[in-house]
Design a protein around this nucleic acid. Structure first.
Length: 308
RNA sequence: GGCGUCGUAGCUCAGUUGGUAGAGCAGAGGACUGAAAAUCCUUGUGUCACUGGUUCAAUUCCAGUCGAUGCCA
């Protein structure tokens, strides 16, 4: 074989587009394994609401980074990058192709391009900045960041507390401006990468989101959420499907209203995902029913002549 | 059948003491480096139900028609 490099095939797409089934089918045909890039399926307690693959599906091909964490664990993109790269190294020893699938764009980027080396968040510092925000509002964050890092301040979304807080946190932790630690260069990888977005007409996607939401309720989403009520404040549960059911359990909204809200919020999530993918011109957009097209592209990228 | 109220953006509604109209939600577009299913930004022209009348001018006033709804029969 001429092509000595291995291939990481990224299969992503908006939520409910059918990437799980499709990737399992591909991985089975290529007799290989799947690494998940889904920031909610990491948590073992999130099953129904996170649309985690079923036990039957997981049995078809080996999966990694699904259910390896508890919702109480702290995890982040950098750790994910490390985990995903370590898995790639191991799996490429015995496979020419490995699939990475999931809908978390930032996590996919971390695996494919890498992210800057920054210290792990210090919870004490973060909490103190959060308190500053709660007590004095966004202006206090703006003033602070402007003093600590005027360069980043000139580019940052000044109305987004999350951006401001993280930047301040890094400045305080490292004693350096956040901007000086961001190189934003793309790390090279010891494997080739093929990136595919599974596309669907918007009406069809919305229909699938609606149907999947109804199915989640039938499958017992409410009981799953009830069992997690003691964790309701952890970040992992600030998630579509869970927060709406918490509101229903609080009797703040009716069940039909909660279900409607889940559908709406899922549609919006899908929209944000699509915005993210559109920005990255490396993605090939392929219709969900064009499995043969995908296989043909994979063959080409593996250095084989397309036989289809 | 009689009397009243209502009919304005996909939905809920506001408003114009007559000069063709605006909020919330939904929708659309965008941003994004350790919270990312998170967090945040931008974006509102529609036969003002229909047909006539009055008027320089009607979505606004008047009449009729249709539809919704309430009360009385």
């Amino acid at each position: 074989m001429k092509n000595s490099k291995k291939l990481l095939c990224v299969i992503t797409g908006p939520t409910a587009c059918g990437k799980t089934d499709l990737t399992i089918q591909l991985a089975k045909e290529y007799n290989t394994h799947i690494i998940s890039a889904d920031s909610r399926q990491f948590y073992k307690q999130l099953i129904i609401g996170a649309a985690t693959p079923s036990a039957n599906q997981l049995a078809i091909v080996p999966h990694y980074l699904i259910g390896q964490l508890s919702v109480e664990d702290s995890y982040n993109v950098y750790k994910f990058e490390q985990d995903a790269l370590a898995l790639c190294e191991t799996l490429f020893q015995s496979h020419n192709i490995v699939f990475l699938t999931g809908g978390s764009g930032l996590y996919i980027d971390a695996a494919c391009k890498g992210i800057d080396l920054l210290p792990d968040p210090d919870l004490e510092i973060r909490n103190s900045i959060n308190t500053l925000f709660e007590e004095q509002g966004i202006e206090a964050l703006q003033t602070k960041l402007q003093a600590l890092d005027p360069i980043y301040y000139s580019n940052v979304d000044k109305l987004n507390p999350a951006r401001l807080i993280r930047a301040i946190e890094v400045c305080l932790q490292t004693g350096k401006p956040y901007s000086s630690l961001r190189n934003q260069h793309q790390n090279s990888r010891p494997f080739n990468i093929l990136k595919i977005v599974i596309d669907r007409p918007k009406e069809i996607l919305h229909q699938r989101i609606s149907q999947r939401t109804e199915q989640m309720i039938k499958d017992g989403l409410i009981d799953e959420v009830k069992s997690l009520i003691k964790f309701r404040n952890v970040n992992a549960l600030n998630t579509v499907g869970y927060k709406e059911i918490f509101q229903y359990l609080d009797e703040a909204i009716s069940l039909p209203q909660a279900i409607e809200n889940i559908k709406t919020n899922t549609r919006r999530y899908a929209k944000r995902q699509l915005t993210w993918f559109r920005r990255d011109k490396d993605f090939l957009w392929i219709n969900a029913d064009e499995l043969n097209t995908i296989k043909s592209i994979i063959e080409t990228n593996l250095g084989n002549s397309p036989s289809l």
